[in-house]
């Protein structure tokens, strides 16, 4: 029993990551507003990034910069004294990708608002302006 409590308490980063991920998933599924859905997508992405950074974190370790450089003799590098930098590099890429998807999603939301005059997905009137290709814009740009 006590080892279960210790197992739950010591992994608090992972519980926060799971709760953040569920908050983002709930916002993407249940919210009607498109901007709220996009915010939920951002929360989901940062939750995954938090999970990967938590994997790389280490107790009592320092930043992955070599204390003994090449000019200071041939000191052996103790890998246990440094934080694992591989998840950091992967998550840098993920942050850049997330801002790109955010820009595309927001521009699509702006175009939907310009055509249907609403951002709520249950008020979009598809019978009034049906989705067709090459349809002329009936609003002034």
């Amino acid at each position: 029993m006590t080892e279960w409590i210790a197992f739950i308490v010591t992994k608090y980063n992972y519980w926060a990551y799971i709760s953040l991920m569920m908050i983002g998933l709930f916002a993407m599924i249940a919210k009607k507003n498109l901007i709220k859905k996009i915010i939920g997508m951002g929360i989901f992405q940062t939750a995954i990034i938090l999970f990967f950074i938590s994997i790389g974190a280490k107790k009592g370790a320092t930043l992955p910069i070599l204390y003994h450089g090449h000019a200071h003799g041939d000191a052996a590098v103790r890998a246990a004294a440094y934080i694992n930098p591989l998840p950091h590099v992967l998550m840098l890429t993920a942050i850049v990708v997330s801002v790109a998807t955010l820009g595309v999603a927001l521009s699509l939301a702006v175009k939907i608002f310009q055509r249907y005059d609403t951002l709520e997905e249950d008020q979009i009137n598809l019978t009034k302006y049906p989705f067709r290709r090459n349809v002329p814009e009936n609003k002034e740009e």
Binding site: I35, I53, G56, A57, K58, I95, V99
Partner: peptide, 25 residues
């Protein structure tokens, strides 16, 4: 957590540019 490169990329890109994009939208 010691991920300073990720931290300042998130502070500039995630908090700065994303908030500007959201406010513009």
């Amino acid at each position: 957590m010691g991920a300073v490169d990720v931290a300042f990329t998130e502070a500039s890109v995630g908090a700065g540019v994303s908030t500007v994009l959201f406010v513009a939208a």
